[in-house]
Amino acid sequence: MQAELEKRGGTILAISVDTPAENLQVVQSQKLGFRILSDQSRAVTSSYGLLHEGGGPDGGDIPVPAMLLLRSDASVTWKHVSKMVVDRVDPSDVVAAVRAL
């Protein structure tokens, strides 16, 4: 997925509401080849319509899992949002969307 995207000059950006230190731990332990941005204030998550109020383990506000594929002009060419907790995107769908860029 990442290779297909990078072939086209693309970048993966993950967004969590954890602290940069927590994200650093995830990047290191999972050996991730992309950056995780920290949206602790939830401002970006809210502006994307993805805030799940009280959805966290301790009643905190956390994002609804979602992916957006953006062209260089910020237009959204493909998107997926989870409607259920166990709902996750099929990686082959993302690869197909990237190939169609």
Binding site: L5, L13, A14, S16, V26, P63, A66, L69
Partner: peptide, 11 residues
């Protein structure tokens, strides 16, 4: 270039 934004629930 293009960007894949991934929102996830956190750890």
């Amino acid at each position: 270039g293009p960007v894949l934004l991934v929102f996830y629930r956190g750890s």
